[in-house]
Amino acid sequence: MSGFASYLVFFLIVASIYGVMVLGLNLQWGYTGLFNAGVVGFYAIGAYGTAILAGPEREALVGGFGLPYPLALLGGMAATGVAALVVGLATLRLRAEYLAIATFGTAIGVQLVAVNFERLTGGVNGLIGLTRPGFAWFGTPGAYNLFFLGVMAVLVAAVFLALEAAVRSPWGRLLKAVREDETAARSLGKNIARLRLQAFVLGSIPIGLAGGLYVGFIGYVSPLDFLPILTFQVWAMLIVGGSGNNAGALLGAVGVWALWTMSGLAISRLVPVAWQSQAGAIQVLLIGLLIVVVLLVRPQGLLGERATVSREAE
């Protein structure tokens, strides 16, 4: 496999992990209008949950259960779901910006726990020596990455199809009703609080799944992986791709991540060696500029939400 192709496989694995995360956020924001500004917190819970369950036994740590990776991944998702339930029960009565502040605070709290609860998370040192699932079956990193990309494709498809089915169901229509006019939905006798909680928890579970997949692919986890910037990146992916459209969410994940990383590659090729230490700033400028341009040209995102009208409306 040529260098560029094998890099592309690596890139797509990471982008599809973010894709799963963006799909989760899309259910919360794109369909239900829940402003979750703590995406990275749920991502971290999924990641640490998986790492603690799958990690090797260590004297200094309470975790390290050495479970098979798929089981650990399910455990991480379950932990994220429980966390989302608790956070949701506590905060979902809050509206828009208040919910954003509350969830943002939750994410910071999760990161602080990761830094300080050393017996569980390894503290600032992180958790090392996590096995990359199935790496032993493949001789080379190239072959392994192809395998992992295949697994990712299946998982992304599964999450995508499940969410599509959900949002096309009567339940999904109700989510949109809540997003558009909560009072009207309530006046129809719908239990809005329960619905918001369902959407919040169901949307958080793919985010936790993405965390577990990231840990499996990288083989290491530390608090530095969960800086607030990641929440911003995931939001940028959703807004650029088109919120309220699952295909747009995936496209946004690939597109924004490509912009974020490949701009660095392009700049490192174009800029002379002597200027390389300034090139990083150009890259960051470029990322911001292109995101702004996309939003100016297509405010609804690359793939906007499809208009849904009743079959009888004609």
């Binding site: 890099y7 690596f10 890139f11 990471v14 990288i218 530390s222 530095l224 992986d225 800086l227 910037i229 990641l230 974020w260 990383t261 660095g264 590659l265 490192s268 060696v273 390389q276 230490s277 090139a279 990083g280 890259q283 960051v284």
Partner: peptide, 17 residues
């Protein structure tokens, strides 16, 4: 020279390229 922006996800991508 590649920039990691102080973030692991950007750093591993740069290293991989």
């Amino acid at each position: 020279l590649r920039d990691d922006q102080g973030a692991p996800n950007v750093g591993i991508d740069a290293a991989k390229t």
